[in-house]
Design a protein around this nucleic acid. Structure first.
Lengths: 167, 167
DNA sequence: TCCAAATCCTTGGATGTCCTACTATATTCC
DNA sequence: GGAATATAGTAGGACATCCAAGGATTTGGA
């Protein structure tokens, strides 16, 4: 990766906010900006681990979700809701996963509008191997202490609830 | 926004991890997934506020950075480093901002390789109005308590340092 | 029963991000 | 000096996400 900057650019932004008389919101601005940047770092790390498996994080998430579903199948709209992404994002992911034989689309037995996404044996196998890799190479060395992990889960959990993600 | 889910999907994922014998990494997995989702929520909120100004968060960040620079100008590579995005992302943003007259490209006085990005008066004015809107509509009601903001800044700050963002 | 409203999925378009490769300009070192 | 190396920015391509719009199917109320 690139050479580290001599100073934290987010801390500098916070100072700029304070200098301009926006001290009231300087800290939340810094926290939010830090979340954005942290997500970038984590996504790059995850996609790097998944690259050898030929899937991206978005596609892996779908495979993992299906692997936990009874029968290894879920309606598209359920997947969209649980992954909390736009339906078109699921369409996109399914197109690509189906293209390489990791999932197949099948029609819902009673509702003609609904399309079921079904894990193939190859998809299930890949999900297992990819999860093992992520567990070892990312989650087991997240860079957060146990206490920090608990704080993040608590703080971001209430944030997501307040944002309307879940009841 | 859509109807809230009856259960937290990330907490459910964590339970699935534990049920499959990955208890050691279930919590970090949940924390990381929560960061990803929180970023999505925040980005949507920010872009919603910026929409009336005709800019996205990526372009706003560049305008804000320039507004704090002496002379309202920065080399492309400096902007890339400070925003911590790929150079091509800056090229993209500058193309669009220049297209609507908010910035202009100028050549570096001594280094012919370098291109300076310069804020136009319109760009500076828009940056000011957009910042005011974000301060009031997003940062002042972030959904985090002061204590949570401090925790996030501390935890994510050390994470970013460890990730090599800054010294 | 039958048509309007709701739901499901897909297509097409806009953005942002990254990577690889390429051109132009500077620097370094023989 | 001049060639090899390094740095700056851009073009082209791959992905993911969202929104708006449209076709298909189901549900529900008149």
């Amino acid at each position: 990766m690139a050479t580290p900057l001599p100073r934290d650019p987010i801390a500098d932004a916070r100072l700029n906010w304070e200098r301009h008389g926006w001290s009231e919101v300087a800290a939340p601005m810094a926290a939010i900006t830090a979340i954005m940047r942290t997500q970038q770092i984590l996504l790059a790390r995850i996609d790097g681990v998944l690259k050898p498996f030929g899937v991206t994080f978005a596609r892996y998430e779908l495979l993992a979700l299906l692997s936990f579903a009874h029968g290894g199948a879920l309606p598209m709209n359920k997947a969209s809701a649980l992954l909390q992404v736009h339906p078109t994002s699921v369409t996109n992911a399914v197109d690509r996963l189906q293209g390489v034989g990791l999932v197949i689309r099948s029609t819902h037995p009673t509702d003609g509008r609904t399309t079921l996404i079904e894990l193939t044996p190859e998809g299930r196998a890949l999900a297992g191997r990819a999860t093992a890799a992520l567990n070892v190479e990312v989650f087991a060395q997240s860079g957060f202490t146990e206490q920090e992990v608990d704080q993040l889960i608590r703080v971001l959990g209430s944030f997501r609830r307040d944002a309307g993600d879940f009841a």
